[in-house]
Amino acid sequence: MSKFNKGKKKDSPGISTASLPDIVFMLLFFFMVTTVMREVDLKVKLETPEATEIEKIENKSLVSYIYIGEPYDTKKFGTSSRIQLNDQFAKVQDVGPYVEQKRSEVDEVLIPKLITSMKVDEETKMGIVTDVKQELRKVQALKINYATRERLKSE
């Protein structure tokens, strides 16, 4: 005769799931707030190099992106690095009009704050990058940012 087992067995009460929606909603709001929709479909491989001395771009609405890298579809586009602007491949000469179009979209006071972010694959050769930079100089888009991944500082 055990002291604890008092004949009658108690039904274990089921865990209340009433607060489950609340928890899920909390997660949902977190992701809704932090989410950034991808602006473009990448057509080029993009593995940016690592660096330590980096800064964050605060205002994303003032940034125009230039992607450079090897196309995913190498059968169709070859393996040499290509420039992608918005959703399509472009030539070096298209960079100027692209930046100018961005300029016309924003408020006039914000034009000096515009940044061009170059997202370039680390295996790209500098030739094409230099060409794009020369093109940016021609249209006076002088504030640029080389997109990089963060590397932890080794002391």
Binding site: L28, F31, M32, T34, T35, V36, M37, R38, A51, E53, I54, E55, K56, I57, K60, V63, I115, S117, K133, L136, R137, K138, Q140, A141, L142, K143, I144, N145, Y146, A147, T148, R149, E150
Partner: peptide, 21 residues
């Protein structure tokens, strides 16, 4: 849906100023 579409990467990079033409 939000889990799948979310990209957590923010834009970090080396800021530089090009010389004028």
């Amino acid at each position: 849906f939000f889990l799948v579409t979310t990209t957590m990467d923010s834009d970090w990079g080396l800021a530089r100023r090009l010389p004028p033409p």
